[in-house]
Nucleic acid binder design. Structure first.
Lengths: 243, 243
DNA sequence: ATAAGTTTGTATCAAAATGATGCAATTGAC
DNA sequence: GTCAATTGCATCATTTTGATACAAACTTAT
């Protein structure tokens, strides 16, 4: 299908979606000691947005979020959690969508379903950076990772959504073992610590961090890693399977 | 207006609501050392439900929750917080609403807006038990408090919603000073402790609880209360105004 | 009036968790 | 081998939390 046909199909799918309800995903990744968020970019308007979508009448909102995540990243079986629903009356304007559609030759009337008021259910996802292939959607032309400290201006209230997702992630990190989802299957204590430091945005004492993590007895040593570096090689860990 | 006229007006208001979106409130109160939840009862079907409602196109979901809370309890300026959105595809059946409407002489066709799929945004409220006058709504005939340990079977997925609200409340209590909203303006340390014990469902050591609360430096002693009881009278406290 | 029975406010000590520092062990570069 | 770097862990100090004890303040019974 050509892009325009894709868009036509999408626009005609309006009636298959649950009205008024949308889903936006804040997809976190961790790479080179930076916490990243996956954003989509609209070529024509140079605007950025969170990957999002609508809920089919025949699926739950959780299923919709999972689907959208899969469409955008190509991964399934991912840590995904709802964190807040954004229901302001005026969450921002839809000019960007209008312009994007227009650039493809579709001029939407004001009453078009796509331009109505939507509430947005926010989900955050924690993914293994290395496993993700960012994929643009119908609206956007580019998908890419952005350092959490350098998020550009986003459409609608998406900046606020990212903020709230980050706050929630920080809270979660304290009393749920959630961070591991951002690392690959095996990792060193150093990698785990720098993940925590990045998310919490503060330095931690190495010895004490190690003591705390090991005392939880959820880590399993895999092997010594011969890093090729000029120092003692670190142990490599993996999460214990809770069978 | 007669009840039937009320219902007619309500049914005709369908187009003024945001489609697919509803709000349900878990209203917590504290009385006689019990944590209570406000439930509505349907006379004809003897079913119970959470107080809930729909979102006007011209209001935010937060405003809708505040309004519903006010309609049901007669109180404003209340601690109210969104905790989860329930978006299962089939959250349960609407037989109770159908039967209720039918008993008032309104037989709804399957396509009626009231019988469509709704997602529900859950809010929990913490109210001063003594200030609330439970008020039934269009569907229900009775509003009343129920001990959290004796919640009857509720319509749709409302039992799950209550569960989730309680879980969230317990989490919140640990790292946000939220419990005070359930007490009257002044209270004794004993009352505060039994509130915590009830919500967390475990005994706390009196001396340590007192030490912890006082160390936060958010309580202000008001006066000695001459309780008339045969023992040393307790201090009465109030939350410090953070001016 | 005094003694008895309660509950409150707080002190005190023990135990556990956390913060801070030091040091031996292991590796590659030279 | 020596050096620099980093890891793993021990050890000590400090803080927080858990548990117990006891004097103070009040009413009721005698």
């Amino acid at each position: 299908m050509t892009p325009s046909q894709n868009i036509k199909t999408f626009l005609e799918a309006g009636p298959e979606y649950l009205p008024s309800v949308s889903v936006d995903c804040v997809i976190f990744g961790f790479h080179q000691r930076q916490l990243k968020v996956l954003l989509l970019e609209f070529k024509h308007t140079k605007a950025f947005s969170l990957p999002g979508g609508f809920v089919f009448k025949g699926e739950s909102t959780d299923e919709a979020a999972t689907r959208i995540l899969w469409e955008r990243t190509g991964v399934k079986d991912i840590y995904l959690e709802q964190f807040h629903t954004f229901g302001e009356q005026n969450r921002g304007n839809w000019d960007v969508h209008k312009a994007t559609m227009s650039s493809h030759g579709f001029d939407l009337e004001t009453e078009h379903w796509l331009l109505q008021r939507f509430i947005s259910i926010g989900y955050y996802a924690l993914v293994d950076f290395s496993k993700v292939k960012p994929t643009p959607d119908i609206f956007s032309d580019l998908g890419g990772w952005h350092d959490i400290h350098q998020i550009p201006a986003l459409i609608l209230d998406h900046n606020r959504i990212v903020e709230k997702a980050l706050t929630t992630l920080r809270l979660m990190l304290d009393h749920k073992l959630v961070g591991f989802n951002l690392l690959s299957e095996t990792f060193t204590m150093n990698e785990l610590q720098s993940l925590y430091e990045t998310i919490l945005d503060k330095k931690l004492l190495r010895a004490n961090f190690q003591r705390k993590m090991l005392s939880m007895e959820i880590l399993e040593r895999v092997e010594k890693k011969f890093s090729g570096k000029a120092h003692k090689p670190p142990y490599v860990y993996r999460i214990k399977k809770t069978t």
